[in-house]
Design a protein around this nucleic acid. Structure first.
Lengths: 195, 195
DNA sequence: TCTCTATGAATGAACG
DNA sequence: CGTTCATTCATAGAGA
């Protein structure tokens, strides 16, 4: 990336660290998703028995399933870490208005999440608990107009436009949204291209 | 694995309805994710990397100032650094016997500290948490100066052992995979575009 | 400059 | 539920 404006002692228009960080995160999620997408594609298009609990990319932190069944020492890599996908789903559900995670609902969510990585009910429960607790503990400390070149206030406009209809409960709801990205472009260019 | 089209003895190179369906599914998921990605971006881009997304507090980040005589860089967000004054106060309070400062107390302390530099209660909270955790870990080990490294080394070793099963344990591994997706393209087209 | 350490911050899990 | 503990990640600053 040429960056261009490298003239001078101070370059202002290249990415800031912050943006870089954000970008990284996005790419991370994007990459993870794409990986799963590919897996899904392979599974489905070859009509393989799509066994439950496909764990392609998202959650490799569990060293359980794998090489030696006899020597599964369940290394103490405790502490479940939600995958990007799982996080998205969880947040969606959280904002779904149902601020109260019903005990039965937990299981449903768990089931859904387990499609993207290993999860237990307890994890989901904890997550919601923490989430709520955390939300409440927000500091009334007013920001002193730090304005780190905050890009847009558009967030307010489009914010959570997806959360109202209870979308992520099952895939049926998101199967055919009004997509109109440059799909062909993407397909042709990168995702589906084999390397 | 290509054939096997069961409905109809027709095996061609064009897409079958089934495949079409699959593709649609994939695209749908992809689209949904991208939508959330944008939301995530909006959340993140306004402030620090709060991976959980919603933190409207806009808790401004700032840089330590005051004590350090020469260099104060206002542009570096991230990581509050307590001034020496603040440190003294904090330590005093810490030793005051109140091993666990109550949440309300935190605010008082924050107020007090803010007289000597910018602080947020979150910072104070974290400080006490870390302080206590740190003390506790040093105690049980009669480490005589050199042992510290040993322990750390062991820990480090154990930590670094992840990634064997495909490696998605932490973001580090998926932040920049060998992606070939035209990132710049995407950026230019949508995510980072201001509107 | 590069590395290593100290420590602020994030968060899953647990306690009352 | 609210609060606290434990573990881990990331980064600023010191040292080589």
């Amino acid at each position: 990336m040429d960056g261009g404006s490298q003239n001078g002692a101070y370059d202002g228009r290249v990415m800031t660290e912050e943006q870089m960080e954000i970008l990284s995160k996005q790419i991370a999620i994007y990459a993870a998703i794409c990986g799963q997408l590919v897996s899904l594609h392979e599974s489905l298009s070859s009509k393989l028995p799509l066994s439950s609990g496909v764990d392609p990319t998202g959650g490799g932190y569990f060293d359980s399933m794998g090489a030696s069944p006899s020597t599964y020492k369940i290394s103490h890599r405790h502490r479940w870490t939600p995958t990007s996908m799982q996080l998205q789903i969880l947040e969606s559900i959280y904002e779904e208005g149902s601020g109260t995670p019903k005990p039965q609902r937990i299981e449903e969510i768990t089931l859904e999440l387990s499609q993207h990585g290993q999860v237990m009910d307890k994890n989901v429960y904890n997550w919601f608990q923490n989430r709520r607790a955390r939300s409440k503990r927000k500091q009334p400390q007013a920001m002193t107009t730090t304005t780190v070149q905050t890009v847009d206030a558009v967030a307010a406009t489009e914010e959570r436009s997806y959360g109202d209809s209870g979308g992520f409960e099952s895939y049926d709801h998101i199967l055919f949204p009004s997509t109109d990205f440059g799909i062909e472009h993407l397909l042709d260019g990168g995702i589906f291209r084999e390397r």
